[in-house]
């Protein structure tokens, strides 16, 4: 599941060829996806992925809370129940992360992570089931961001200025290390986007220097070619198979 999430993040995010802050990510958004896995050539629906945004205020600052939840459909809960939360607290306009948290429960295997971003350093706290809590501080590139906030940063990118085949490199922080990712703009295609209907989308291919992704141009994301750039479809290829996330409903855009 970690690999799937990483793939999704990579696909979504690294589409940040350039950042234009002309569009703000608003609080109150809710994107729901149906997650399917390819079993013997047939797509089988496994889980629902929900991405939401909301404002969070502390005594001193306001943050945008970006949350990504993954829950298996009830029919799977008796066999392999998954309840994962990936969340990031970011600056409302720059989307620069301050805090990233991950809590996973996958068939009884649990893990909790907390990354505190400060300047060019990250302090991570990890607690795996049956293992004592560990803390680590490591340096990161100034542009490195977490796996959730990058999902939203890509929506600030102006893809209309990209040329087919153009590539760009990025870095994300995942599993207590920086991972370089390359993405390639592959033109436009029309895909189904849940309650938004059929939409013309930007097609992006993602490659990463990690074992989590497999194949050339087999990890793809389609973003609606409008101001919102909603991820409409994500296809991934990992060592244990292929799958997809299809948008079923989008609200609060």
């Amino acid at each position: 599941m970690k690999k799937i999430f990483f793939t999704i993040c990579s696909l979504l995010l690294l589409c940040s060829f350039s950042t234009e802050n002309s569009v703000n990510i608003k609080a109150g958004e809710k994107l729901v996806y149906a997650g399917s896995y390819n079993m013997s050539g047939l797509m089988t629906q496994l889980a629902q992925v929900t991405m939401t945004t909301e404002n969070v205020a502390t005594a001193k600052n306001n943050y945008l809370h970006l949350s990504c939840e993954l829950s298996t459909y009830s029919k799977w809960d008796s066999f392999f129940k998954i309840r994962d939360i990936y969340e990031s607290y970011v600056h409302p306009t720059t989307l620069k992360p301050s805090l990233y948290k991950r809590s996973i429960d996958e068939g009884g295997y649990t893990k909790k992570e907390k990354y505190v971003f400060k300047d060019n350093k990250v302090t991570s706290t990890v607690k795996k089931r049956k293992y004592p809590e560990s803390t680590k501080t490591f340096s990161i590139k100034p542009t490195s961001i977490d796996a959730v906030s990058i999902l939203y940063q890509l929506r600030l990118v102006d893809f209309s200025k990209m040329q087919t085949g153009q590539t760009k490199s990025y870095t994300i922080v995942f599993d207590e290390k920086e991972i370089p990712v390359t993405l390639k703009y592959m033109g436009k295609e029309t895909v189904k986007a849940g309650n938004l209907g059929s939409k013309e989308c930007y097609k992006i291919s993602i490659g990463a220097k990690t074992d989590a992704l497999k194949g050339k141009d087999k990890n793809l994301i389609w973003l609606t070619a409008d101001a919102k750039k909603v991820p409409a479809l994500i296809k991934f290829s990992i060592p244990v198979g292929t799958g997809q996330l299809a948008l079923t409903s989008a609200s609060g855009l």
Binding site: K60, N61, Y89, L99, V116
Partner: peptide
């Protein structure tokens, strides 16, 4: 998370 952000601030 809110507590942790306030501690960070």
């Amino acid at each position: 998370a809110k507590k942790e952000l306030e501690e960070l601030e």
